[in-house]
Write a protein that binds this DNA or RNA. Structure first.
Lengths: 198, 198
DNA sequence: AGCGTGATGTTATAATATATCAATATGAAA
DNA sequence: TTTCATATTGATATATTATAACATCACGCT
């Protein structure tokens, strides 16, 4: 036994390191990038640390988001999930998403009714670990539809200051900034990615 | 003839000042506060200035929002609209809302899938007039469900700064801050108004 | 093994939003 | 005034997003 929850559910619930020869078990189209596998494993150990369960289903949904270059809608995830998970239905996806959102492993982009994996909890040294209450902001490119997650102290402070000025106690902020990303600005590619207007 | 668009559609399309004795024409339950009437008239003249039409339908929808203490969902508006407007259907409301949003007379609160009238375009001296591209932020109270609209320069600057740091060109920002308003904090009334979590 | 809890399966439906095309109203031109 | 182009509204259908409710199954504990 390699870890606290190995052999649970199926191979997709296992950190890569504990698998015999992963490729042999992974059905066509399911190979995940090394980065995704690494991030999934980080998410996984974060869950262990918190005493919650990163099940196969949740890991799969997280994996789908990590492999995508842009936010995915619930029904996008559902469709992809169904390829390997016949019985998947809307609640299947929404429940997995609820878990991931609750534990700060993913975020909902309200403007797009879409979801992205959280890179700050997972990536490098941002060890929030037991605490998932980080304040994030999102840059949404209207041309390429990519979303970048920020954790900008200046924005957080400005919001705290303005709220305090109104006697308001902040619990959560939704900050979604739309426009053109550096790459699209540079390449002059201004066709919209069919985002909602305003 | 009293103004550019008088007698259009019905009495509700008319600024109060041009009406003979408004009360006599207004059906039961349709009396609007003096504040609402005044703001509707401001919205109206803003539209005239911009060469767009504040029709009876749009004015009614705007009026419903102005009379409400909290954000209204599209189907709330629809239901209220139907009381005086038999044929009203979802597109009726969404089209009126689209117009009001486009002209900065209302805002959508993404977190609540709800709509509020814009007070900054309408109230007192904020004469944006021809220009509706003001940057707003919203304070959403989880207890009383009231929403306060801000136009805080500090937040706008912090966002501009952070975005510039990423080479991102901002076109629009959605800033929705959830928590407890001063009144609810003071009164200790902490029952949630059934807002979505996180 | 038996039990309590949490996770998933399954079906149905609620809530939010848009597409499409017909009918009508409006403002400007002739 | 008539005519015309355009904007607005009417009406029906449907797409999209999200949840309720209850059955079943897996897991962790004793």
């Amino acid at each position: 036994m390699g870890s606290a929850r190995d052999m649970a559910y199926d191979i997709h619930a296992m950190p890569t390191a504990t698998r015999p020869t992963p490729e042999a078990f992974v059905p066509e189209g399911d190979r995940l990038s090394a980065r995704t596998e690494a991030l999934l494993d980080r998410a996984d150990s974060l869950c262990v640390k918190r005493g919650v369960r990163m099940t196969a289903l949740r890991r799969q949904v997280m994996g789908l988001m990590l492999e995508s270059s842009h936010p995915l809608r619930a029904y996008d995830l559902l469709e992809q999930l169904q390829a390997r998970h016949a019985g998947a239905a809307p609640p299947t996806v929404y429940r997995a998403l609820d878990f991931l959102l609750e534990h700060g492993l993913a975020h909902k982009i309200e403007r797009l009714s879409s979801f992205v994996p959280c890179v700050h909890v997972l990536d490098h040294s941002h060890d929030h670990d037991g605490d998932c209450a980080h304040a994030t902001q999102f840059l949404i490119c209207r041309t390429c539809a990519r979303v970048t997650e920020l954790e900008d102290g200046g924005i957080v402070r400005a919001i705290a200051l303005a709220s305090r000025g109104s006697g308001f106690h902040v619990q959560h902020s939704t900050i979604e900034i739309e426009g053109l990303c550096a790459e699209c600005l540079a390449s002059g590619t201004n066709e919209s990615a069919s985002l909602p207007p305003q």
